[in-house]
Amino acid sequence: MTIDWVSFTPWAALSGGLLIGSAAAVFLLFNGRIAGISGVIGGLLKPSAGGIGWRIAFAAGLLAAPLLYRASVGMPDIRIDAGTPLLIAAGLIVGIGTRYGSGCTSGHGVCGLSRLSTRSMVAVPVFMMAGFATVYVVRHLLPLSGA
């Protein structure tokens, strides 16, 4: 393993993390809910999921965030290398997987670990390992990386 010191941005990462944790805290203190993005968004597609107003409001906040960021900091650096077929496949798998597994990086990762949920302590290592393994296969084993 070699560490990419040039790309390493510890202060930005840490301060962004503190903001994400604060957002989860606001949602918990005022709404009494887990700030799990797949659950908040996925519940819009489920008729019996208990209210849609707050879900739409949360999604609107997420969508408005880049506008606020662009107005105050500048254009964020976002690079998406995957092509359309890969994006569609990845999106489908993420959609089905996060609902089937009841959470993603926010619900299990940030909130689940913070409240010491046993299920999240299983889910997080499982999806991290799957992510590491997938990138290893795509970048280092398959000749067609970048497809």
């Binding site: 997987g97 499982v126 390992m129």
Partner: peptide, 8 residues
């Protein structure tokens, strides 16, 4: 599944 899609 989520981890695989995330990594893709």
């Amino acid at each position: 599944m989520f981890g695989v899609g995330w990594g893709l």
